[in-house]
């Protein structure tokens, strides 16, 4: 895809893909089916990143979301179990209130975002390139980069400590 400008046809295909898969996550009764929809939704977002001219983020999205996070969530499904039953067992009591609230929020956010003046936004893409990105990451943003590694370490240790089976005797 040269350029990375706005392609209405590709955009509508990817948008439909993402939204259908997203609804699949929220609406499906089976947890496994929801997980498969989630993987499809992540893939759709990766396609959107590719359409938006960031091949790097598309690859990272597939590696981390489609690869790692999905596997972790599927492990979570494997280690727990959910009873089968009628619809009331899948949606809680506030779901009736949540639906109009969420629709209202969607409309509000979309209207605000669209009516905001992003005057500098053009139809053509600006592509910083991998070299510029990495120099930005390792010079100006090197402190957050290091902090993120600490966060990952803390999360790893925390997850091990939390999920470990405790044998007290």
């Amino acid at each position: 895809m040269p350029g990375g400008d706005f392609h209405p046809v590709y955009f509508s295909i990817v948008a439909a893909w993402i939204l259908v898969a997203g609804i699949g996550v929220v609406a499906s009764r089976s947890v496994v089916r929801a997980a498969v929809s989630m993987v499809l939704c992540f893939l759709g977002v990766a396609f959107a990143f590719a359409l938006l001219n960031s091949a790097l983020l598309a690859i990272v999205q597939i590696l981390i979301y489609v690869g790692a996070i999905s596997v972790v969530i599927i492990f979570g499904i494997m280690l727990t179990e959910t009873p089968a039953g009628p619809r009331q067992q899948f949606f809680n009591r506030q779901s009736v209130i949540a639906a109009p609230l969420v629709v209202a929020t969607a409309v509000l956010v979309a209207v605000i975002l669209v009516s905001g003046d992003l005057l500098t936004a053009g139809e053509t893409a600006v592509n910083p390139g991998l070299r510029q990105l990495s120099s930005l990451l390792f010079n100006r943003y090197v402190l957050p980069f290091e902090l993120v590694s600490l966060v990952l370490l803390a999360a790893m240790i925390g997850a091990i400590v939390l999920a470990r089976r405790e044998d007290r005797q």
């Binding site: 959107a48 727990t80 949540a98 969420v102 956010v109 992003l118």
Partner: peptide, 30 residues
């Protein structure tokens, strides 16, 4: 509508689908 605004609308819709899942589903993994 601007190109970036189409993506904003898509992002808002996806965000709200996710928000509905967080508010309405009972299964914590979902």
């Amino acid at each position: 509508m601007n190109a970036v605004e189409w993506y904003f609308v898509l992002a808002a819709l996806l965000f709200c689908i996710g928000a509905y899942g967080v508010l309405a589903r009972r299964n914590l993994i979902i």
